[in-house]
Design a protein around this nucleic acid. Structure first.
Lengths: 120, 120
DNA sequence: GCTTGACTTGGAGTTGCTCCAGAAGAGTAG
DNA sequence: CTACTCTTCTGGAGCAACTCCAAGTCAAGC
């Protein structure tokens, strides 16, 4: 499939996909006779994973490292596992931050209610 | 208090605080006779709120708008409430994204386990 | 009186995109 | 065949939100 379809399926914009390729986050995408990129389903699965990792705060540097491991095949599975486990810990931290912020918002909103009560 | 203490208490770096002031996210901070910024506890509370809003993904533009409302006093409470409610909806969305990503990671990790099982 | 340390400003650098101009190729309409 | 539209390509500029740095000021301590 071509880039627009890959974009639609992965969630990444075409620009971002090209940018990721340039940055070494992809195992060089095949080109058709016309010179346009052709994405395999495996390519798209990879892009989708990148989409989620990035969206939840993994820095590009770490994704680059992860991409290198991926390119080196199955013998790097152990290390890749470690990267993902570290990331899922990051998710836990993020969730706690959201929780904390939600608390603060609730507090602020209730304080507003008190002020409004005074003024009416 | 001075900027280093305000930084410590709010969670924002001194650089970021100065940047926020320049960007209009703060009601102009007082200066002492020495020309250095002096932060009131109210200033710090405001910075702390900004810290959490930013950390959980509110764009600067929206924070600027919120800051303007704040500067206009109590008559903007209703609108400020709306901003915070919108943000708490954003938090909900973010939480779902984290959840979704956690699922993907679990799936990937279990897939790795299968591969490792085959190789040993 | 001299050094140390926190602070000041303005500006350059960084990350991770996002948008744009200009060109090339395929497909459709007249 | 010509004209037009669509998608894609590349290289490069622009942007958000910091982050870091150089050069200078000023008060406090030895």
């Amino acid at each position: 499939m071509r880039i627009s379809e890959a974009s639609l399926k992965s969630g990444l914009s075409a620009d971002t996909i090209r940018y990721y390729e340039k940055s070494g986050l992809m195992p060089a995408i095949d080109r058709g006779a016309d010179g346009l990129r052709r994405f395999s389903p495996e390519n798209v699965e990879w892009l989708t994973l990148l989409y989620w990792l990035r969206k939840t705060g993994m820095p590009m540097k770490e994704m680059c490292h992860f991409a290198e491991l991926y390119q080196q095949g199955e013998r790097t599975i152990r290390e890749r596992k470690a990267v993902l486990i570290r990331h899922s810990e990051r998710l836990k931290t993020r969730r706690q931050e959201l929780e904390k912020c939600a608390e603060i918002l609730d507090y602020k909103l209730s304080a507003y209610k008190v002020i409004e009560g005074k003024n009416t």
